[in-house]
Nucleic acid binder design. Sequence first.
DNA 1: CATGTTCAGATCCTATAGGGCTGGCACGAA
DNA 2: TTCGTGCCAGCCCTATAGGATCTGAACATG
Lengths: 235, 235
Amino acid sequence: MQRPSQINSPGTRKGRPVSRQVLADHVYEELLESLMDGRLEPGATVSIDGTARDLDVSPTPVREALARLEHTGMVRRVALKGYRVAPVFTREDFAELMEARLAIEPVNARLACARLTPERLAQLEQAVTDLKTAPRGPSFAEYRDYLEADERFHRLIAEQTGNQFMVAAYAALGGQVQRFRLFGGVGITDAENAIAEHQAVLDALSTGEPEKAASAMAEHVRKVRGRAIADAPEG
Amino acid sequence: MQRPSQINSPGTRKGRPVSRQVLADHVYEELLESLMDGRLEPGATVSIDGTARDLDVSPTPVREALARLEHTGMVRRVALKGYRVAPVFTREDFAELMEARLAIEPVNARLACARLTPERLAQLEQAVTDLKTAPRGPSFAEYRDYLEADERFHRLIAEQTGNQFMVAAYAALGGQVQRFRLFGGVGITDAENAIAEHQAVLDALSTGEPEKAASAMAEHVRKVRGRAIADAPEG
DNA sequence: CATGTTCAGATCCTATAGGGCTGGCACGAA
DNA sequence: TTCGTGCCAGCCCTATAGGATCTGAACATG
C-alpha cells in the first residue's frame, strides 16, 4: 500500500481519537466541499477513476463516498455510465423547495420552542451573531460564512425539536447544500432583511412562544421566496 | 471472474434492457428485502464479507449497497467495526415518527389534491382496493401485501404533490421501511378502521377538496397513533 | 478471584488487476 | 465532402490480495 497510515500513525496512540476516520469519509467530505464551493458545476461528470487520481486514493473508497452522496441528491448515477453533479436549480425547483420548507420549518420552530435548553439557545444566538458579522463581499468565498451561519441556524432548530424524523426530513431538503447551489441563480441581496427575520424567530423562541416562533419562521420563508423571485435574473 | 455475465449475456443482445442492472443494485434490494422480512433483526451485525459470501459476490458491491442503505437509516456504520441493523423501534421513536408524519402528510394530501390526474387517482384507488383484499393472517408473511399497499397509498400521495422535496421528506421518514419494522412492536389489529380512513382520504381527493383531504389524512395519522399506543404490548 | 496480556481468527479497509462497454478519432470509401 | 468502419483510450464494474484492526478466548499474574 502506498499510503501506510496517515491516519492513526502507530506512534501517536494516546487516548485514540473518538471517531476514527476512514478514507471514504475523507473523500466524501472532499467531494461535498467541492460541490459547495462550486468547483464541481451542475451537470459535470464526476469520474470515479479521475477523482481517485486527484485525491491520490484508489477507486474503492471513491465509489463508497459517491454511493452515499447519491442518496443526498447532490449527484445522480446512471448504471454503467457513472455519476454526474445534479442539474442546475431551476425556478420551479426553488419554488418547490420553498413550498416544502414552508411545510416543515414552522413546525420545527414550534416543536423546538418546547424543548429549548439554555445551551441550545446560546448556539442559536451565536448563529445569528455570526450572520450579522459575516463578511458579505461580492465573491462566492466571501459569502461562504454567511451561508454557513444561515444554514446552521435552521439546522439547529430542526435538531432542537428532539425529533429524529424531523431532522431527517429537514436534511432531505438538502438543507446544507441547496443553499449553496442557489448562489449564482439568485444573489444574496437580502442580508439585512433576513437577519432581522432570523432575529424575530430567535426572540420568539427565547421568550417561549411556540406559535409566534412558527409564524415568524413561516414569514421568513415566505419573504425569502418573495425576494428571491424578485431578484431572479432570468425568468 | 466467477460469474461472467448473468447480466447481459452476449447472446441476448437485442434491444438491450433500458436500464441495465449492476450487482450493487441487486445486493441493495436483497438486503432491503431481508430487512423488511425480518430476517435481519434490529441490532444484528451485517458483515460485509459474510454478506458477500452469502450472495456469492465480492465485497465491493456489498460495500456500495451498504453505503446507500446507511443513508436511509436502516443500518448504521461504525468506522472499522462494520454495519449493524438499526436498533429496535421504541415507543418514543414511534411517537416521533407520528409527530413528523402529522406535519408532513396532511400537507402532501392538500398539495396532491390540486395536481391529481385521472391515472394517478386510479393508482390510489387500486392501492385502497389492495388494502381491502389483502390477506391478514397471523404471520408476518401474510401481512406483507397489506403493509405494502398501505405504504404505496401514502407514497403515491407524496409523489402526486409533484414536489420532489416533499417526496424526499416523506422518504426520509423511512416510509417504506419503518412500517415493516414496527411489526412485532405494535400489531396490526386496526385494519378495518384504517381502511375506512384511507377511503375517506381518497374520497376527498377524488372530489377535489384539498382541506378535507388534509384533515382526513391528519385524522388518519392521529388515529393510527392512538390505536398503536393502545395496542402496544409494553410500555 | 480479578485483572492484564497474548494470540488467532474474523472482519474491515484499500489497492490492484482485468473484463466489458462507450465515445471519439483517424482513415478510407462513396 | 460525407459517411461508415475500425481502433484506442478512458471509464465503469467486479474480483482478488493483503495490510490494519477488532474481538474473544486462553493464559498468566497479582
